[in-house]
Design a protein around this nucleic acid. Structure first.
Lengths: 152, 152
DNA sequence: TTGACAGGTTCTCTTATGGAACCCACTTTC
DNA sequence: GAAAGTGGGTTCCATAAGAGAACCTGTCAA
C-alpha cells in the first residue's frame, strides 16, 4: 500500500495516521500542546530539518489541525496554533505519554507530570466507557461493522 | 535530531514514538488488536512490503510489545501476539480511532463500532482524570517537571 | 519430484530525511 | 544609507527508508 492511499482505508486509525502518522507530526503536535507556536521555536526545540518542518506545518494547516494566526504585520508573521480539530488530538497525546511514562521511563522516574487544574492533583488519564463508566480494556471490547463499513 | 536518538529524549511522547512512531507500526498494532497474528495475514491485510513487515515485527518483538508464540513445530512456525506491554497501547489505538471517527469519517458514517462487552453498548472511550474523575481536557492540564526531568 | 506453504531475505528503483547554504521582506543599528 | 539582524522559508546534495518483485529455506503432501 502506498502512504498516499491511507486516508482511503475503511479504518479510522488508518485515516488518523494519514494526518499524524509520520515520523515528525506527533512531535510537532506535542510542542503545540506545550505552547510552542513559531517556526523557529519548533525548529530549535525539535532539531528538525527546516524543510521537513515547513512541509509538516503546511500539511497540518491544510488538514485543519493547525490555524495560522498573524501576530504582526510588516513584515507579515504568522504563528501556528492548534485548532479545535487539533485540540481533539489531546487524548492521543496523553495516552502516548502515559505509555512512555509506564514503559520507557528510566529508574529516575517520569520526565513530566500532568497536573489537572480542575482538582489540583497529578493526573493520569483513564479511558472509560462512555456508556457504563467502567475502564475500557481491549479484552472487553469487540468491533462490529459501522454504517461506513466497506462490504467486501 | 536523528530518529535513533528519540528514545533518549526527556519526553514520554518521544520515547513512545521511538517504538511505535514510524509509518507502519501503529497499523501493524491495529491488526494485532483486531486479531491478526501471522506474517502472511499482516502482509495481505496491510499491503505492506515484506521486508518492512519483517523488520517492524522484529523491532516490536525486541521492544517487548509483541511476543512470538510457536503454533507448530516442524517446520517451526511462530505467530505474533500482543504482550502485556503491547496491550497497554490499547488506549492509544482507541483515541486514534476516535479522532478518525469524528474528523475523518465520510457522510456514510464510521467504518467500525466498538462494543463494550461489559455493558453491551456501543462505546466511545472517554479520558477522565484518575483523581477527580472529571473529563481531561488540554486547557485544564499543565505540566511540571517530574523526577526524571532533565535540568538544563 | 514436483508443488505448495509459511516466513523470510535480497535485489533494484523511487521517495523521504538530514544538514547546510541561500533567499526575501522587512527593522534596527552603526 | 549601508550593514547586520530577524523570522520564515526554499534549494541542493548525500544518505536512509520504502515499494515491489524475485529468490531462498524447511517441511509436508500428491
Amino acid at each position: 500500500m502506498r502512504w498516499e492511499d491511507l486516508d482511503q482505508e475503511a479504518c479510522s486509525v488508518a485515516r488518523t495516521l494519514s494526518v499524524v502518522g509520520d515520523r515528525w507530526t506527533l512531535l510537532i503536535l506535542r510542542e503545540c500542546f506545550l505552547g510552542t507556536r513559531r517556526f523557529e521555536a519548533f525548529e530549535s526545540r525539535l532539531g528538525i530539518a527546516r524543510h521537513v518542518l515547513a512541509d509538516r506545518l503546511k500539511k497540518l494547516h491544510e488538514a485543519g489541525v493547525l490555524d495560522r494566526v498573524a501576530y504582526q504585520e510588516r513584515p507579515k508573521r504568522e504563528e501556528y496554533r492548534l485548532s479545535e480539530r487539533g485540540r481533539d488530538l489531546y487524548p492521543v497525546m496523553v495516552t502516548l505519554a502515559q505509555w512512555g511514562d509506564k514503559h520507557m521511563a528510566g529508574p529516575e522516574g517520569v520526565p513530566l507530570l500532568r497536573i489537572h487544574d480542575t482538582c489540583g492533583h497529578v493526573t493520569v488519564g483513564e479511558l472509560i466507557c462512555s456508556d457504563c463508566g467502567e475502564p475500557l480494556h481491549a479484552r472487553d471490547v469487540h468491533v462490529e461493522a459501522g454504517p461506513g463499513a466497506v462490504t467486501l
